[in-house]
Write a protein that binds this DNA or RNA. Structure first.
Length: 926
DNA sequence: AAACTGATCCCTTAGAGCGAA
DNA sequence: TCTTCGCTCTAAGGGATCAGT
């Protein structure tokens, strides 16, 4: 296929790229009984879909919680499952996102589409819907439905499986599951869908998919909170639009899975989850892509969805399908697309699935069986069978066999049975929002990045094809491992793209993780959306020592213009090209609580030029040196030149340069990826306390690396070398991760780094601003300090902290909550949520998430994290107001410096202004 | 006006899936 | 029925271009 023009792709006028063509979606909706059926219409649907299927969509009115326009997503009912998947999509309605066109839809914030089979749909679901949602299903009757917006929600947990099967569950339970999503209005923008509608398909797709997945999976997973329906919903919708894919899928091919259909991937994949990821996502863009339509068209795959659903759980599948579709397609509108997609999927699925119609139970079972693989399946595509496809994902159930077969191929990985479903954790809906800061270790558990990603990875636009998975510096791919987990239950590792600036770690508004699928990918994964942020979910299997090779994650760049137009978005995309891979794992404990850990990678530069031209320091052999200097330091990185200069600078808090000097570079030993320098003497040889400074590699006027941290210590103080990790235990973890885990020799300090650290540590704040982490480390080490290091205490939640965290290193004064090293967040199982406080501030971009949801209320609420600061103890209660606390943090950072002195660790900090760093970076030119 | 950047395009290469021989 | 060959298409990447800052 010709390259895609996004424009063309979407049909949307250029401007709107992002917005998908909503139109499709809707196509026709009929109200029937309360349900409306939608048929894919022409364009989209046509091809592919099998006629047979009809989708019924129920629209519920939405309740909008807040402002949000968001949506929800669906929940599918599990019900049906057997076939039917009901799917609910949520549309993003309100959001700006929606194009006016869609208004109708839009108006209703959310829409849930359920596909059902005739019967299937049933009751249960409906019930829920109704019940829960009130509106009963409002089915709006025909038109009405749509218009009335209603609903939202989702359940999460429920996912099909549960619900269905368990329909018996006490209401309460169900309820829980149900959740309302909040719409993210604001977030919306983040949503891919919303965001750029245009843009991105990908994004959308992503989202959508994600969502879908989530849904799907989630339900599968059900568990995985992560999956959280919530998010997905949002996404999906949008994505959905695209979806159409289903069309493509039609027959079997369900997109989802596989690519099934097509062997090639394309179709399949896309459908899938996008496995292909890229493309799919980008659908639009994607050059090739099939547009959904088109190419895909043939596809027919609908099946997927259907399938999936069927397979897994009805619910799921549906969703999935939807989702995927959504993505796939273009980006078109979210909603619409999504819906359509969903529908299609359903339909398709319906066909297929239905056929298969696996009983819920069966499904479950199967699911269980199904190895993870199923999940992945992807491409496998071969089969077009709808059923299969669908299944895969979730369930594996049905087809486990097949899948495996297929899958096997695809996913190598462990085939192991890991099925997404297994992980079920419960679903508590409430997992911590993505912008919450979580510790990297808690109690016996420690999440670490064993192999850090390369510092450069050119992200791809939706309009481009995938640029592959993020790789490790030494070749291969990043590796993440959860230490201390002795249970036999697989867990789900979540991955999303976070910021790399000095502020608290949060989902990056301009980048999304992109699922890579294909033969070269050995790790199964699936996407889910959480508040507009795509989250890749990867199984962590005991058999693999809870270690995962991240070879399935690429990075998608969303158009700045798309994102910046979102409401609520405050970040700017220009020069905001550094990201970090953020990994999370939620460990359910017997007590019913969930310990959530997070670790962030070193910063990754995602722009084309930067990667090509700017020097970048990945590692430094020294973090500290006595004031007299003179020690040799090895810098590993990229784009070093013979005439590269290494400049040490010290800035005052206000940003003024206090000192600047050029280090001596051993030219003869310099290489493109390494430099050996002699640490210059500090301006003041009589230091009484460590002093944090920065240095950067300069290849020319505007070609500077980011600032790297460095600390001069009193001559008597032992220098530390790099080992960052060491120290921290908890903190360490973080650091390690951050840094590089790897070992690190070097700590990376890039400003960003800091962040990571934060992340890892969780404490976002803790560290302090940008650099804090590193600093902390430094400090710590040198002294060997006590652990007190700030790091250790992560606070979790600091969340809030102002954007700049500035650090806090150490701050942790005992009293402070934050300090606590690990904070783990605990959720209660059930979902209830608690503390709103927890929610971090969402900052502009990031946060959207949960909050909206409600924290308080419902669904999300569930999540309550309690954060504990302390390592172990997760206290539930803690409230975590943390965020709010942050303010202090910043100060701390600074203070830390001073404080440093004493407190071991921390101290040091430096700090700088994180901001500045960035700025500097930005300015660099300056 | 020059220097950057962001967003696309274009092109190339390696593989995989398919179908025809 | 199996194997081989050629074709098509996609994922990945690298580089260049164009327009807006």
């Amino acid at each position: 296929m010709p390259p895609y023009n996004h424009n063309s792709c979407s049909h949307v006028p250029p401007h709107h790229h992002h917005h998908p063509p909503l139109p499709l979606v809707v196509t026709s909706a009929f109200a029937t009984d309360g349900q409306s059926f939608i048929r894919p219409s022409g364009s989209v649907g046509t091809h592919h879909k099998p006629p047979s299927v009809q989708y019924s969509v129920h629209l519920y009115s939405m309740q909008i919680n807040q402002s949000c326009p968001s949506l929800c997503l669906f929940s599918m009912a599990a019900d049906a499952y057997g076939y039917t998947p009901n799917v609910s999509l949520s549309l993003p309605l309100g959001n700006s996102c929606l194009p006016s066109q869609y208004h109708s839809l839009q108006s209703s914030p959310t829409i849930s589409v359920s596909v059902t089979e005739p019967h299937s749909y049933d009751t249960q679901d409906d019930m829920r819907a109704t019940g829960y949602y009130s509106s009963a299903n409002v089915r709006p009757n025909g038109a009405p439905t749509l218009e009335s917006p209603r609903i939202e929600i989702t359940a999460y947990g429920q996912f099909p499986e549960d619900e269905v099967e368990e329909s018996n569950l006490p209401v309460a339970k169900r309820v829980n599951s149900i959740v309302t999503l909040t719409l993210p209005s604001a977030e919306g923008y983040r949503d891919p869908s919303c965001l750029s509608p245009a843009s991105s398909i990908s994004s959308r797709s992503c989202h959508s998919e994600a969502s879908s997945y989530e849904s799907n999976y989630s339900y599968n997973y059900d568990n995985s909170p992560q999956n959280s329906p919530w998010q997905s919903p949002s996404v999906s919708p949008k994505g959905s639009t695209l979806v159409l894919p289903g069309e493509s899928c039609a027959p079997g091919g369900s997109p989802r899975h596989s690519p099934c259909t097509s062997p090639r991937t394309s179709v399949t994949d896309d459908s899938w989850m996008g496995q292909r990821g890229s493309r799919p996502n980008s659908p639009c863009g994607a050059k090739r892509k099939y547009s959904f339509n088109g190419s895909g068209a043939p596809h027919k795959h609908y099946p997927y969805s259907p399938n999936h659903s069927p397979g897994l759980s009805p619910q799921t599948s549906p969703r999935l399908s939807i989702t995927e579709e959504s993505w796939l397609p273009n980006t078109n509108q979210y909603t619409n697309s999504a819906i359509l997609a969903a529908i299609n999927a359903l339909t398709t699925d319906g066909v297929v699935d239905l056929g298969e119609g696996i009983p819920m139970k069966a499904r479950k079972t199967s699911v269980e069986h199904s190895p993870t693989v199923s999940l992945k399946l992807e491409p496998g595509g071969e089969e077009l069978n709808p059923g299969e496809l669908c299944q895969d994902e979730h369930s594996s159930n049905r087809l486990p066999l097949k899948k495996e077969g297929y899958c096997g191929g695809f996913l190598d990985v462990p085939q192991h049975p890991y099925s997404w479903s297994k992980p079920k954790q419960y679903v508590s809906p409430s997992l911590p929002a993505l912008d919450w800061q979580l510790p990297s270790s808690s109690g016996p558990y420690s999440l670490q990045i064993e192999v850090q990603p390369k510092s450069h990875h050119r992200a791809h636009y939706e309009t481009e094809g995938s640029r592959g998975a993020v790789k490790a510096l030494a070749g291969g791919h990043p590796v993440v491992q959860l230490h201390g987990y002795m249970e036999s239950e697989p867990l789900t590792l979540q991955l999303f793209i976070g910021t790399a600036d000095d502020r608290l770690l949060r989902p990056h508004a301009f980048y999304q993780v992109h699922r890579i699928t294909g033969k070269t990918v050995s790790t199964p994964s699936h996407e889910a959306l959480h508040n507009n942020t795509k989250v890749l979910e990867i199984p962590l299997l005991p058999e693999n020592n809870m270690r995962a090779i991240i070879d399935c994650a690429g990075i998608l760049k969303l158009r700045n213009s798309d994102i910046e137009l979102r409401k609520g978005e405050t970040d700017i995309g220009r020069k905001n090209t550094r990201v970090r891979m953020v990994f999370r794992v939620h460990i359910n404990q017997a007590t019913g609580r969930t310990v959530s850990l997070q670790v962030a990678s070193n910063p990754i530069e995602c722009s084309q030029r930067s990667a090509q031209e700017l020097p970048l320091v990945d590692k430094q052999s020294l973090e500290t040196c006595p004031a007299p200097g003179g020690e040799r330091m090895l810098l590993d990185g990229h784009n070093f030149q013979h005439d590269s200069k290494v400049v040490f600078v010290e800035k005052a808090q206000d940003g003024h340069h206090l000192w600047e000097t050029e280090a001596k570079v051993e030219r003869e030993a310099s290489k493109p990826n390494s430099l050996i320098i002699e640490v210059p003497p500090y301006r003041n040889q009589r230091l009484s306390t460590p002093v944090h400074v920065n240095f950067y590699v300069c290849n020319g006027k505007r070609k500077r690396s980011q600032y790297q941290r460095f600390t001069y210590v009193p001559a008597s103080v032992p220098t530390i070398k790099t080992e960052p990790h060491d120290d921290y235990d908890a903190p360490l973890v973080c650091s390690q991760h951050n840094s590089g885990l790897s070992l690190h020799p070097k700590p990376y300090f890039p400003p960003q780094v800091m962040t990571p650290m934060m992340t890892s540590d969780l404490r976002p704040c803790v560290v302090g601003g940008a650099f804090p982490a590193s600093q902390q480390r430094l400090a710590a080490k040198p002294a060997s300090l006590p652990s007190s290091s700030p790091s250790s205490s992560p606070k979790l939640h600091d969340l809030s902290p102002p954007p700049f965290s500035k650090c806090l290193p150490a701050v942790q004064h005992p009293g402070q909550q934050s300090p606590i090293p690990h904070v783990s967040i605990i959720q209660e199982t059930p979902g209830r949520f608690q503390a709103p406080g927890l929610y971090p501030p969402s900052s502009s971009s990031s946060s959207p998430v949960s909050q909206p949801s409600t924290p308080g209320t419902g669904p999300e609420a569930p999540f309550s994290p309690t954060h504990c600061m302390t390592p172990t103890p997760p206290v539930s209660s803690s409230t975590s107001p943390v965020a709010q606390q942050h303010p202090k943090v910043p100060e701390r950072g600074r203070s830390s410096l001073q404080e440093d002195g004493s407190p071991p660790a921390l101290a040091v900090s430096i700090k700088q202004e994180p901001q500045e760093l960035d700025q500097m970076y930005l300015d660099d030119g300056e």
